[in-house]
Simulated scan of single mutants.
Amino acid sequence: MDFARRCEHCGKVIPDDADPRRIYCTRRCLNAAMNGLTAEARREAKAGRICTHCGEPIPTERRVDALFCSGRCQSAARHARDRAAKVPIERPVPVRPSCPICGKPVARRGKTFCSRSCATRHKHATGKISNASLAGYYRRGATTHPPRGQDKKSPASESGADNHSDLVSSYIGPPP
């Protein structure tokens, strides 16, 4: 009968001069045995887990904290959770102001009128632009048709102003 101590992992003989508490022949056998024990313990702890999405068993190769059997189940569960949590947002319908001249909605923010023609109509109606002053200046020349209430000689022609901007400001008024 052989009374020699043997390694619990590989079965080799442990030398007689080794520590009597020693049960593995080398450090490599010790590490391999410990890794094998922990791998077996992990496999046992992972057994019997159920996928939270489809109800199938989770493979033992998956992590200890895995809740799903595959990436496909995990993705499907996330999409289902997102769809269930998605609440439609009620956004107020933008109210567009209407044009004070024609009543159509104004298309752009910050604008008062729907078109340039409505803006011009408003300026004529409020007296900011008079047809008489513009008609004489633009159609027949600046000095031939003065605005109402003035005689043929304009203050601009008396002062000797010859440039265009002085003539315009004398008929329309100073720029704002």
Rank of each mutant, 00 (worst) to 15 (best):
I58D: 01
A80P: 00
R43K: 15
R148Y: 09
G136T: 07
C118P: 00
K12R: 14
H9M: 05
Y24M: 11
R109K: 14
S154M: 15
F113C: 01
R43V: 08
F3T: 14
N163H: 12
T120H: 14
P59G: 02
A84H: 07
T143C: 12
C10K: 04
A84K: 12
A77W: 07
G136H: 04
C69W: 06
A132V: 05
T38Y: 11
H9D: 07
S169Q: 13
V95H: 08
G55E: 06
V106G: 05
V87G: 03
D2R: 09
F68H: 13
K46T: 14
Y138I: 13
Y171W: 11
I129T: 12
R42L: 15
D2S: 13
D65S: 14
P100D: 02
A41K: 13
E90A: 10
K104R: 07
R49F: 06
I101G: 01
S169W: 10
L134Q: 07
D166W: 05
P174V: 04
R62C: 05
C10V: 02
R43N: 13
E158G: 09
C10N: 05
H164T: 10
I172F: 10
G127D: 06
P176L: 08
A76T: 08
I129K: 07
H164Y: 13
C51Q: 05
G103E: 08
A39T: 13
D65W: 06
R5K: 11
A47S: 13
R139V: 15
K128G: 06
Y24E: 08
L67K: 14
D166V: 05
R72W: 06
V64S: 13
P59C: 05
K12F: 07
D82S: 13
A161P: 03
C99Y: 02
S159Y: 14
R62S: 10
S157E: 15
V93M: 04
H122C: 02
F113H: 14
R140T: 12
G127L: 08
P97Q: 06
P20M: 04
P175W: 08
L30V: 03
H145S: 10
A39C: 00
Y138F: 12
A77D: 07
A4S: 15
K12A: 15
A45G: 07
P155K: 08
V93P: 00
C51S: 10
E90W: 02
